[in-house]
Structure formats: structure tokens, C-alpha cells
């Protein structure tokens, strides 16, 4: 495991945990798309089917369980917690996410490494992760602000690394690290592995990862604007 991948894993993990803790502590989930969170839960459950068949490392197993558990906990809070669920923007979160699920499954049936139960669901989870942010993007456009997304912003780990690596800025520093920062680490990790490992090949994951990162660029754009203007993050109405 290289440092980029570990940094990516940690920032991803912390962004999920921070979101969960923030929802639970403030008892509100306003601005968060339940559909995106449900898609992420589906992504983790279908990708980690190998929990039952392959053992890679204790780290790997524990991280998989934590990813599944924390994402399911977010979904549970938003759907069933008697206080939290009242603040859910049901009327704005109308993206038809079933089409995404169906489309990704169809693609996985066609494009996969091997036609086995596990491999098809693995490919499905990769494709779905790439587009799972779309309901959240639509909800943001409709609600017109991203204040609540600060729930997904991270304060400590990776913040310095991220600032140095990505922004390379010394004039004015961002105060929080955004939830999508882990994408940058994963891309560095793939570049590193491509050059250091002889047989590293995961075109499906890399291309999907790039598409996912491109979709997140929308967030990056607004984040950059607010950083440049040194202002609160606001989307155009």
C-alpha cells in the first residue's frame, strides 16, 4: 500500500464519518440527498461481496465493514430517525435514481472482467459509484446553497497534504477540506501503481474513477470560486 492510497482511504473514511456524526449531532440532514446516500450504500454492499470469499488483510476487512456500516447508518438516520427525517428535503430530492441503477447494471452485464456473479456486481458497483453523486448535484442546484455540505467537509487529516499537493497555494488557504478530496489521492495512487507494479490493470475502475472525478469537478468549481472570493459557498439560483 502506498501513501496516496492510504491518504485516499483515510480522507474518504473521515468524510463519511464526519457526515454521519454531523447529521447525528445536529439532528438535521437538510441539503443531503438520501438517494445519493442509498446509492453509496448499494455501491459498498455490492462491491464487498468478496468479504465472504476472499481475505486480503485485516485493514481491508475492517475498512470494508466500516464503509458499509457507516453508509447504512446515514441512510438509517435520514429515513427512520424520528427527528432527523423531518429535515429531509424530500420534495427537492426527486432524481430518478432507479434509472442509474438499471443503466449501471446493464453496463456491468456487458462490460466486465469475467462473467461471474461477483465480477458483474463488482463492475456494477464501480459504475454506480461514478454517477452516485448526481442526485446530490441536482438537490444542490435546486436548493441553491451548499451550506449543509460542510457536513462532508473535513477538518484535519489530509488537509495539509491536500493543500500542498493540489492547490499549491501560499497566499490564502482554504479553511476546510472538501469531501471529494480523496479522489485526488486515488488518482495519484493509480498513477503510482501503474508505474510501480508490473501487472496492475484495472481499466474499468480507472476510467470510471476519472468520470466520477469529472462529475465532482462541479463541486470543485464552486469550491474554487468561494475560495478565490474568500466567501461563503453559494450556488447561483
Amino acid at each position: 500500500m502506498n501513501i496516496f492510497r492510504f491518504a485516499g482511504d483515510m480522507t474518504h473514511l473521515i468524510s463519511i464519518l464526519v457526515l454521519l456524526l454531523k447529521i447525528y449531532a445536529t439532528k438535521t440532514c437538510s441539503g443531503i440527498s438520501l438517494k445519493t446516500q442509498e446509492l453509496y450504500a448499494l455501491v459498498f454492499v455490492t462491491r464487498y461481496l468478496d468479504l465472504f470469499t476472499d481475505f486480503i488483510s485485516v485493514y481491508n476487512t475492517v475498512m470494508k465493514l466500516v464503509f458499509i456500516g457507516s453508509t447504512l447508518a446515514i441512510v438509517w438516520c435520514m429515513r427512520l430517525h424520528r427527528v432527523v427525517r423531518r429535515s429531509y428535503n424530500r420534495e427537492l430530492d426527486t432524481f430518478r435514481h432507479y434509472f442509474l441503477v438499471a443503466g449501471c447494471f446493464a453496463l456491468a452485464l456487458v462490460l466486465h472482467e469475467k462473467f461471474t456473479f461477483q465480477e458483474v456486481f463488482w463492475a456494477f458497483s464501480i459504475y454506480l459509484e461514478a454517477v452516485a453523486i448526481l442526485p446530490q448535484l441536482v438537490l444542490l442546484q435546486r436548493s441553491g446553497n451548499v451550506d449543509n455540505l460542510t457536513g462532508q467537509y473535513i477538518f484535519f487529516l489530509g488537509y495539509l497534504t491536500f493543500s500542498v499537493l493540489i492547490l499549491l497555494s501560499c497566499s490564502s488557504q482554504p479553511t476546510e477540506m472538501p469531501f471529494w478530496a480523496y479522489r485526488a489521492f486515488y488518482i495519484l495512487n493509480w498513477i503510482y501503481r501503474y508505474f510501480t507494479e508490473q501487472h496492475f490493470s484495472r481499466w474499468i475502475a480507472c476510467i470510471s474513477g476519472l468520470i466520477q472525478t469529472a462529475l465532482y469537478a462541479d463541486f470543485f468549481y464552486y469550491y474554487f470560486l468561494s475560495w478565490k472570493n474568500n466567501a461563503t459557498l453559494k450556488l447561483p439560483a
Partner: peptide, 10 residues
């Protein structure tokens, strides 16, 4: 095999 294909990742 897991190392080679990258399926050791999360």
C-alpha cells in the same frame, strides 16, 4: 491475483 487487478483496493 488481487494485487494485480487492483481489487485489493476499497
Amino acid at each position: 491475483a488481487h494485487q494485480d487487478t487492483g481489487k485489493d483496493e476499497l
